[in-house]
């Protein structure tokens, strides 16, 4: 008798603990979902998702052009290929300016340096500058500025060349 009531009690205690834990986990999940960054909260940047940068011929080889609205640089390499480089330093996210006199990006915050392809010349930056996808159709360059893609260093297949038309 005594034993039975005890075990029933402990059964309910366990049940409550289980239900309580579940409810708590649910609450946490709810909070996480509620506070996750939402599209609508960052809407302003999303309208600029696809940026039409211009025609291929308007960019000289070996130059870098800043796009303030898309927060990227369009670099045309000497061989005519294109890269859209994020302007955020991979060290601690300062905005890196292109110093054309020295032909490199130099971060004002902790002096990381990057070459025209975004590769690190001088640390503390740990990775090459992030890339945005570039598409060239009918000689018009479009950059998808939604989300930068990480890379550890420059590789030849990252370059986008104008179609041979």
């Amino acid at each position: 008798m005594e034993n039975q009531t005890l075990s029933r009690r402990s059964f309910f205690n366990r049940l409550w603990t289980l239900l309580g834990t579940l409810a708590f986990a649910e609450l946490i999940a709810l909070l996480i979902i509620y506070f996750k960054p939402r599209k609508s909260r960052t809407a302003a940047t999303n309208q600029d998702a696809i940026i039409i940068a211009g025609s291929v011929d308007s960019f000289e080889p070996g130059t870098v052009t800043a796009f303030v609205r898309g927060k990227f640089y369009l670099a045309r390499l000497d061989d005519g290929g294109f890269l859209a480089l994020s302007r955020s330093c991979t060290h601690l996210s300062c905005t890196v300016p292109w110093v054309s006199g020295k032909n490199r990006f130099i971060c004002p915050c902790h002096s990381s340096e990057f070459d025209i392809r975004g590769d690190v010349i001088s640390p503390p930056a740990p990775r090459a500058l992030d890339l945005y996808p570039v598409a060239i159709e009918n000689n018009v360059i479009r950059v998808n500025a939604t989300r930068p893609e990480r890379r550890s260093e420059y590789a030849a297949d990252q370059i986008v060349y104008p179609g041979k038309t």
């Binding site: 506070f35 996750k36 960054p37 939402r38 909260r41 960052t42 302003a44 940047t45 955020s88 996210s93 989300r147």
Partner: peptide
């Protein structure tokens, strides 16, 4: 925070409400 493995970037974006400081 980005440098903390696994959770760092998520944590950062949760705090910032996006990938860089803004309205959120």
């Amino acid at each position: 925070l980005d440098y903390i493995p696994w959770v760092g970037t998520g944590l950062k974006e949760g705090i910032l409400g996006g990938s860089e400081p803004g309205k959120a």
